[in-house]
Design a protein around this nucleic acid. Structure first.
Length: 279
DNA sequence: AACAGCGGCAACCGCAGTTTC
DNA sequence: GGAAACTGCGGTTGCCGCTGT
């Protein structure tokens, strides 16, 4: 792997996202890395906006956070993605779509940025070469947007003999979950082990985000909601990751043309947040 | 050896959600 | 309740190194 900080030391000037003139942009130097690492080790993560000034860095807070999260954190695993990790990414992407932070949260030591890059540079191409639409994880319909070679024509022809009408291939993409999955900025809700976490307004269950952020499934505070939401979501993910049921079922439904009827994620998600059923 | 094209990846940008006042 | 500030996420950019010609 290329040295991430020393290989590109050109300093481009001011970043538009930073209001202050004179802030540095571009690759980080080893000196900057050291300053940031020392500061975060001493003071802890968070307060990114004020961190650069306190640490003596001429960077915007966003840049500091990104550098720490994606590269400097001790828990970040460097090196090649193993076949097991690759398989996991594929399964999680099929389930979650481009929700890189969620995917990263299930793969220890990997960052959302790393997984996103790996997906875009390796896995999406790999799937395309296998005649699979990387967005939907279903066989590619003959589509001018995806150049396919002779080997892949076979796969496309086969699926087209099942049903040539693309409308029957509903993309298996989970519904936008932003209403139900919230980012927690308070730093109060943390663990995978705790089932319930309370703040002033809501009950939360969290599943750890590997970026050190806490992605939580929130529900209205409700005494009837006394099951462990975290366990439900976590075990649901694990079940999908570890079993072939999903694949078999999906394949079967492709053949039957009824894929849209099967959505285990939403089924489970509705357990987590029953209010969704009414929306 | 020189050049062009491509791939990989770190970093940036804009937006949206959350928190604070 | 609304505005401002803060934080995090996903999409995109752009640089560097590698490879082919």
């Amino acid at each position: 792997m290329r040295s991430p900080s020393s290989s590109r030391n050109k300093v481009v000037n001011v970043t538009p996202c930073c209001t202050k003139i004179g802030l540095k942009k571009g690759p980080w130097t080893p000196e900057e890395d050291e300053i940031l690492t020392n500061y975060v080790s001493k003071e802890g993560e968070g307060r990114w906006r004020t961190l650069p000034k306190k640490a003596g860095l001429f960077r915007c807070g966003k840049s500091c956070r990104l550098r720490w999260m994606n590269y400097l954190r001790p828990s970040v695993k460097r090196g090649h993605i193993s076949p097991d990790e690759e398989d996991l990414i594929l399964r999680l992407h099929r389930l979650l779509g481009n929700r890189w932070s969620l995917i990263a949260g299930r793969i220890p030591g990997r960052t959302d940025n790393e997984i996103k890059n790996y997906w875009n540079t390796h896995l999406s191409k790999k799937l395309i070469s296998q005649g699979i639409d990387p967005r939907t994880h279903k066989p590619l319909i003959l589509n001018p947007n995806y150049p396919i070679d002779d080997n892949n024509k076979k796969a496309n022809n086969e699926i087209n003999t099942i049903d040539p009408n693309p409308i029957n291939y509903i993309p298996f993409q989970m519904e936008e979950p932003s209403r139900s999955i919230n980012n927690n900025h308070s730093g109060e809700i943390t663990s995978l082990d705790g089932c319930q976490h309370h703040n002033s307004n809501a009950m939360f269950a969290s599943y750890g985000d590997d970026d050190g952020m806490n992605v939580v499934v929130s529900t209205e505070r409700d005494d009837e909601m006394n099951f462990c939401v975290d366990d439900v979501f976590s075990s649901f993910l694990n079940s999908l990751i570890n079993e072939d049921m999903f694949i078999n079922c999906q394949n079967q439904q492709i053949i039957n043309g009824t894929l849209q009827d099967f959505d285990p994620f939403m089924a489970s998600f509705d357990q987590i947040n029953p209010k969704r059923m009414d929306e």
